[in-house]
Amino acid sequence: MTQIDRIMSSIACRTREYLGAEFGVTITAANAHCSESDQLTLPRMTTVIALGGNINMLVAFGFDERLIDLIFDKMTEGFEVGEDEVAMYREAATGEAVNTILGHCTSDLADDAGGVITMTPPVILEGVKTIRRMKDASFYTQNLDSMFGQVTVNLVGPRMIFDNHLDYATQENHEHR
């Protein structure tokens, strides 16, 4: 099993566990592939977390709207959310969901010989975004289907050529919106 396979397998397993236990969502199908295309198109709202240590990649999660609604409703149970706070709490809810899933993954992926796997705080990207693949970049995609819609997981790396907004960390901007 390659490292990418291990990462994708851990993410699929932890996403299934978390969505099932917290929100009663069952993942019905999963498929993963190494993208060979020249560009990666991210969903309208994407949560990005960079994993350090022996992983050294960025993970971008996109949830279908119905899943976001479900996560938001469950996480805000027990307190009032004002109309002007809804957008902020929706972002916070998906950010926390991704943070929790990947935090659990770190225990699967930790390597005794390596240091700890660090995580960055979640960054929320709004609006459909397309990233063109440059020579050294790699994209891997996994789709997890549920009755409330799809979870799209993209692995983007290596980490050092991107910033936390998935823009190339060079002066020339290779991103197209």
């Binding site: 943070n99 929790t100 899933i101 990947l102 935090g103 659990h104 770190t106 225990s107 930790a110 240091g115 700890v116 796997i117 995580m119």
Partner: peptide
């Protein structure tokens, strides 16, 4: 109170 499950992180 954190999502990090790594043993090394707990010990740190």
């Amino acid at each position: 109170v954190t999502s990090h499950g790594q043993e090394k992180m707990v010990l740190e």
